[in-house]
Design a protein around this nucleic acid. Structure first.
Lengths: 137, 137
DNA sequence: TGAATACACTACAATTTGTAGTGTATTGTG
DNA sequence: CACAATACACTACAAATTGTAGTGTATTCA
């Protein structure tokens, strides 16, 4: 299993995860935690069953985004990647996919999308392109 | 309903649709067709039930990607957008989403992804950026 | 020893997608 | 005109995904 789905009608981590999964990931990106701990934190919003939390956390291990570490009697869970790295990897994959598959069509619409983007980014982009052109020619 | 899911472990239209849905869309982007016609074309690969095809096609109408046109006794189905426009719209949405949500992180990884991209695209990009910078400053 | 705790195993509901049965209305032909 | 074929609606079911939660088991600690 793996993360390979981008829901572009959702927000934040919900783009990659179910809503409960996302909340759990968020908590575990803050800190390595036990099921109980995660459950109690989630409970502050609305009651959530311990087993529910456990199941979802174990599924996330199955998906390869969490790791379980046995600490005496309790299992501690932590993401295999930092949140930043996760997002980087996923967005890179998505972008590569878009370009691979739909090439030029996409570039143009990436650029349209970039119209909203601020000047600093544009400058960065420009530099990167210069560098790329240099490398290749 | 709507298309809002990008599966980046899949290929082609399967990124946006289920495998059968994708085949059907492909056929209808070639030509407006009846259920029967679509069914018969699909049948050439492997047997496929008429009702199966009908159900999926009606669901695609429900999702807003197909339109049904009653022609005497038969319904003719056609996509609401050209394939090109569909892909453009979707990839634009995805790109906007990525940028909105993950901003600079994404730009850099877009650029990494672009390393593979050919020179002509880079030039286009560069021009676009010039134009953007002109517009904004 | 018995209760509490942590976890495994199992199951169920909703959603999505592929699959297909049955029912109904219309059409066209003998 | 009657009946079969056709086109389609309605309904249902299975697998996968995600949220939900019950029961069972082993360990620990009072």
């Amino acid at each position: 299993m793996d993360i390979n789905n981008f829901k572009y009608d959702e927000v934040g981590l919900n783009r990659f995860f179910g809503p409960l999964e996302a909340k759990i990931m968020e908590l575990l990106w803050e800190n390595e935690r036990s099921i109980k701990e995660v459950q109690q934190r989630l409970d502050q919003d609305k009651p959530i069953n311990f087993n529910t939390v456990m199941t979802v956390m174990n599924r996330l291990v199955g998906k390869g985004v969490l790791k379980k570490r046995i600490q005496g009697r309790v299992s501690l869970f932590h993401p295999v990647q930092s949140k930043e790295d996760f997002i980087k990897e996923q967005s890179k994959k998505i972008t590569e996919n878009l370009l691979d598959e739909f090439g030029g069509v996409v570039i143009n619409h990436m650029l349209d999308a970039m119209e909203e983007v601020d000047q600093t980014l544009l400058v960065k982009l420009e530099q990167k392109i210069k560098q790329l052109k240099g490398d290749k020619s």
